[in-house]
Design a protein around this nucleic acid. Sequence first.
DNA 1: ATACCACTTGCAACTGACTTGCAAGTACTT
DNA 2: AAGTACTTGCAAGTCAGTTGCAAGTGGTAT
Lengths: 145, 145
Amino acid sequence: MKKPAGVELAGIIRKAGFRATKPRLLVLAFLHGIEYPASIKEIITGIGREKVDQVTVYRILEAFKAVGLVAQVDFQHGRAYYELKDAAHDHHHIVCTGCDRVEDFTGCDYDKLADKALSQTSGFAKVTNHSLELFGLCNTCVKTA
Amino acid sequence: MKKPAGVELAGIIRKAGFRATKPRLLVLAFLHGIEYPASIKEIITGIGREKVDQVTVYRILEAFKAVGLVAQVDFQHGRAYYELKDAAHDHHHIVCTGCDRVEDFTGCDYDKLADKALSQTSGFAKVTNHSLELFGLCNTCVKTA
DNA sequence: ATACCACTTGCAACTGACTTGCAAGTACTT
DNA sequence: AAGTACTTGCAAGTCAGTTGCAAGTGGTAT
C-alpha cells in the first residue's frame, strides 16, 4: 500500500510539471493526510524538521499553488494555511474565533458570484479565483461568549 | 466644513467608546477619504509619518476593528488592508492579480450563506463575520496574460 | 549503467509586517 | 485647574516569509 501511494503521488507531481523529489513527495503526502488546512509550521513539524528545510516547504507550496495543486486559505491568524485543491468539491471553511476550530461547507455559488461581480464592474474581464471564509462561534465557545 | 467634519468624527469615536485623540481622528479621517482599502503603510504615509507613530496606527486599527468600525480585508499581498465598515452596504472586492487594481461588488447573499453553512456543520452555533474576495484580471492585464 | 545538466534543495542572512514593554503625554471628569 | 485612566511614542523584539548562492539530485541521453 505504501509503494502504490508513493508512485501515484509522484505521478501527480510530474503531471504538474515538477520533478518528483523527496521533499515534494513528503509535502504532498502530508497534505493528503490532513482533514483541514495546515500552516507551514504544522506542515514542517508534521513532516519532520530534519527531513526538509522550511525554505523548501515555502517554495514547494508556492509552486503547487501556482499550478492549482493546493489552495491557500486565510483564517486571519497572521499566517497562511494550505490544503489540497479539489476541483470537483469547491468547499470553504467556517472558523471559530474562540478556539480556531474549523469545519467545511459547500455551496458558495461561485459561478453566479463571478458573473454578478463582472456585471457590476466595468474594469474587469474575468474572475480566476476566489476566497471565502466564514467566522463564527462553535457550540462550546458560544456558551462562554 | 472642516470643523463640523472633525466634530462628527470625534462623535463617532466617542460613541465607539474611545477618547477622541488626534491620532484616532487622523486615522478615521483618512479612511473616510479613500475609495478602496488601504494598507497600514498607505495609511501612515497618507497621514504623514511625523504626525503619528506606526505602532499607534496598528493599535487604532485593531481597536476600530474590534468594535466594528473598520473592516480588515486580505488581498493576499502579505499585509492587511483596512476600510471603513458600512453596515448598510455589505460589499466585497475583486482584485486584479496582474496589477492589484480593485473594484467593489455587492450581493454575496451573506444571510443565505450563513444559514447554509450552519445547516451543514454540526459544531457551529452562529456566524459572526465573513470574508470574501474575488481575484481576476482587469481589462488591461487580460490582454498581456 | 554512466554521465550530464537543469532543476532543486539547504543554509545563512535578510526583509518587512506586526507586537511588546514602558515611560511620558493627554482627553475627559470633577 | 488637577487628577487619573486611557493613549501615545520610542526602542527593541518576534515571527512569517524571502533571497543569494553553493552543493545536491532526478530524469534523460548516451
